[in-house]
Design a protein around this nucleic acid. Structure first.
Lengths: 339, 339
DNA sequence: CTGAAAGCGCTTACAG
DNA sequence: CTGAAAGCGCTTACAG
């Protein structure tokens, strides 16, 4: 590997001068700068990130993004937005996928590891425990969350209670009175606030509409399509089955649609289904849903992290909670109840 | 940040001893090691990766994974497999998403940048040009490809010609004689070998079955669902429309199904459709497809990269091309032609 | 505008 | 078993 010394020798100048010339710093003659640049390119020189990091105060120029499940549409799309923004500002994105594994979680969030290998951490869709928060929040540590809020950290998310209320409002306006909720109640070893908030929105909407609350109509779909199928079957096999299902994610809603098809329950004639996300597959299923801007949330989170990194450590940074808005997309899976 | 000096001072030993104790090296008394360990934990000490990297020969313990489109199922699933394996061996995964942007491609593959920031590079689904190959292949550089082969680098992939032949064989065995191909012919500014090979498999299968080759039956679906919809409409609006469509990916196949539905073309009665991948959504669509093991391919690629890194530079490493096998999954979108 | 020198936080022979 | 010292490849005051 060619080092800064090689370039310096080649040009007959000191390493200090090479360093300045290459970084576009002032106090280098144009002539010298040109020669250095030329030699650097010719020799194929790139600074060693380790040396740069060590010499200039430890910045790694990499931001960790921690997600629970990379392959799910929401998370990979957040990644897309964050990566693009980070790359633009010449930072690397280090991917940490927890995969529902408590051990992985512990290794990532429960140690100091993360805090030295990266400059900042973006946590997506996982609620750190109090202990984890304390560990991550060391002074100078930059943490941003996506999809949920933690008091002292900046965040970006939708309003989970409101989005659920909007979905319910659509169903209620259509005339439905017996509406089931498919969400995620168990936490798979991770902690999510999202399911809790959406469930709350569901219940509040029920109350607001003067509809009775039947706890047996709240089922766990684990935020997966498979979970949606199971939930769908459980709900549709009941004698007093609901006329509509509100699923807290499109993936679960798609599962419910599948279960309905398997049982010969017609949608939307016999059953209305609504989801949340506007997953890329939703329009193929004709699914009515609440769209949320996901790429944008990833981008905003990256920007927040980068902003904190560039600001002075003792700037009084009021944590900024950004709430992006959702939009009802009516397609073919919702209609007035037939009975 | 607490440094190795703090720990050394705390224990009244030298930094060399702390270094040895913490890394489990021999020639440290058990008593000393215990004291050092305790102090390190108590002080919350973690080695600075920059210092470690600089002092011990530049290893960054991070592997770059370069993908063209993070959000597509195939790529995010490769990521899942690779991340898990890398994490297990205490490496970071740095994500590089090209996003169909030629500029991004140039920045990533066309410079030395990548080669110093990471120890190894895993390139997924993109064929580097000759120039890029030369630049990436500097001595000591470890590059592994997924989904395609490059002569001097290890790789893991399915047999793209064979998988296409298998899909076609299924259709031919069902009695279809007029079969269209929906693939990706234009390259979106990136280079993919996959579409080319699958197209070749399609043509070879046609020849093997003694079927005529009609070039107008080969259309470009761009490997997206939207492309699949367009292709579907184009194909189904013809007076001499095909009785079956072989799509080179499930995402495109799903698009074709959607187009058929929009036009009132019944599947499989009026049209058979087969894809490749076994995308997580495919079973909800009842799509017949050729399943490929994707998580496993990501894992193998990571393992190959790590293996090369740990072996001696002048080991004569014959590049190992791993081919994983595919499996026909028959569901409800394929049947004998009705006419 | 340019260079000599110290320092970033570790690891690694080399002595002892 | 342990320590003093050099060195990894840069950046950064400080002189000049």
């Amino acid at each position: 590997m060619t080092s800064i010394d090689d370039v310096a020798r080649e040009c007959g100048v000191s390493t200090a001068t090479v360093s300045r010339a290459l970084r576009g710093l002032p106090r280098v003659s144009e002539d010298t700068r040109a020669r250095v640049l030329e030699a650097a390119v010719r020799l194929g020189y790139t600074p060693s990130p380790h040396a740069v990091g060590l010499a200039s105060g430890g910045r790694t120029r990499t931001v960790a993004v921690v997600v629970p499940f990379v392959t799910r549409w929401y998370f990979s799309t957040i990644l897309l937005g964050a990566e693009r923004e980070l790359r633009r500002r010449d930072h690397d994105l280090a991917l940490y996928n927890l995969g529902g594994d408590p051990e992985a979680r512990d290794r990532v969030l429960g140690t100091e590891l993360l805090t030295k290998r990266v400059d900042a951490i973006v946590i997506v869709g996982i609620e750190p425990t109090a202990t984890e928060q304390r560990r991550l929040a060391r002074p100078g540590r930059t943490v941003v969350t996506v999809g949920l809020r933690v008091p002292h950290w900046p965040s970006v998310s939708i309003d989970d209670v409101e989005v659920a209320e909007k979905a319910m409002a659509h169903l209620v306006a259509l005339g439905h009175r017996r509406i089931a909720y498919v969400g995620g109640l168990k936490d798979e070893g991770l902690d999510f606030t999202t399911p809790r908030l959406r469930l709350r929105g569901y219940r509040q909407a029920l109350a607001a509409a003067g509809l009775p609350h039947d706890p047996t109509l709240e089922v766990d779909g684990g935020f997966t399509s498979d979970g949606g199928i199971e939930s769908g079957h459980a709900l549709l096999s009941r004698p007093d089955r609901p006329t509509a299902v509100f699923a807290a994610s499109d993936e679960m809603a798609i599962g419910v649609l599948h279960a309905a098809k398997e049982r010969g329950v017609r949608v939307p004639e016999d059953l209305s289904v609504i989801g949340i996300d506007d997953h890329e597959m939703s329009r193929f299923m004709g699914l009515t849903t609440l769209r949320q801007p996901v790429v944008q949330q990833g981008q905003i989170a990256a920007r927040q992290a980068l902003h904190l990194l560039s600001s002075e450590p003792d700037d009084e940074h009021v944590p900024e909670h950004v709430t992006v808005s959702t939009e009802l997309i009516v397609r073919e899976t919702t209609a007035p109840p037939s009975s």
